[in-house]
Simulated scan of single mutants.
Amino acid sequence: MIFLDAAATTPVRREVLDAMWPYLTGEFGNPSSHHSLGDAAATALAAARAAVAQVLACRPGEVTFTSGGTEADNLAVKGIALARQAADPALNRVVISAVEHPAVEESARYLERFHAFTVDVVPVDRSGRVTPEALASVLRPGTALISIMYANNEVGTVQPVGRLAALARERGIPFHTDAVQAAGWLPLDVKALGVDALSISGHKLGAPKGCGVLFVRGRTKVEPLVHGGGQERGRRSGTENVAGAVALAAALTLAHAEQASLAQRVTGLRDTFIRAVIDSVPGALLTGHPVERLPSVASFCFPGTSGESVLLELERQGVLCSSGSACAAGSDAPSPVLLALGIASEVAQTAVRFSFDSSVTQAELELAAAAVETAVGSVRNLGK
């Protein structure tokens, strides 16, 4: 099998497994316990926090461990907006883009349903980009938070986060970015990006599922979503997943060390793959920005087919990929992301996403491109 669905998840790296193994076995202590086993767990947790902070160029106290990217997004959107509203009831608007992950969009809609917030949605252009002008057009005096993702999980478009965050800073509005797909491929220096909050998920980086991180800038107030014993500096109660934190820190450190060279190598492979598909499949439509896109994502629509039928045919040929976000599994509706790009509904339902991890090779992508040509051709012939 050729695995080209890394945007959904990645295999656990051996180095990461080795790093976390002691905390799944002998070093099983609770980091809140005041004895030697607890102290060892607390030390490991502090070291993991410091390692994450080093990659993000922030202070360890600004790092909160979560159960994954979804929880990190929920804590950022709900937590910051609610804290701002509590301080000033006039702050009752949140801004998101039209192509956000459901973890951000549904968090904003929750605020709308239960806390009287208004959700302002920034449109994107046909490549999926938010411009500073488009963002400025929706900002209001009551805006409590802006949340715009760093890179899109379906089409790979990278947003000009630095420019958008600078605009938010000029208006005194906290800016959160979902960096779940960007981590490992794009720089994560939060000072350079200028963001106030940033979310990461471990299983996109070679760590296990169930571990994530939220960076929140020091003086930004956050209302916790999980209440209890006050762990994670009161932002996220519950006994910490020490093994998961260690795993995420190890995976993030490895990815950070490899990021520049890996991004350059995979970008070249991605572009060759895109050209091969466009050249061999009549009518193939590349979705997302042609240049400002993740090295790891090549996404297409194949008009005249069914995306699900193409996926089944590709799997029969040994290529595993997806029709879009794994978080929308089971839905046969056209992707809201593709609709936001102005793609017609019937074309959006023909979408197929190919996403690569660090181990992808030229030989694999050559075989995959040939399989795409055959699969699309077979599906079109069956439809005649």
Rank of each mutant, 00 (worst) to 15 (best):
H227S: 02
R293N: 12
I173H: 04
C327H: 08
A243G: 09
V104Q: 00
R169I: 03
A72K: 10
S36N: 13
E106G: 00
S323L: 02
V190R: 06
L286P: 12
G283F: 01
S306K: 01
D357G: 12
R270W: 10
W21T: 06
S67P: 14
V291W: 07
G26A: 14
R163C: 14
H115C: 00
A8Y: 05
K221D: 04
I80H: 03
A207T: 03
V99T: 13
G304C: 13
S237Q: 15
V281E: 13
A182P: 15
A166W: 02
E373R: 12
V190S: 07
T253M: 11
T131C: 08
R235N: 04
H256E: 14
F354N: 04
R265W: 13
L294W: 01
H101F: 01
I173F: 10
V122C: 10
F117V: 08
A363F: 02
E232L: 10
A134Q: 13
I96M: 03
G283Y: 09
H176A: 14
A333R: 05
R49A: 05
T361E: 09
A136K: 04
R113I: 07
V94F: 00
R270V: 07
A197D: 01
L139F: 11
D5Q: 15
V95S: 10
R217D: 13
V352W: 00
S323D: 06
S201N: 07
T70S: 15
T43Y: 07
V195S: 02
V360W: 03
L252I: 12
Q54P: 02
A87W: 06
T374G: 05
L193Y: 00
S299C: 06
L367S: 04
A98G: 10
D88L: 13
A165Q: 09
L338G: 00
T350A: 02
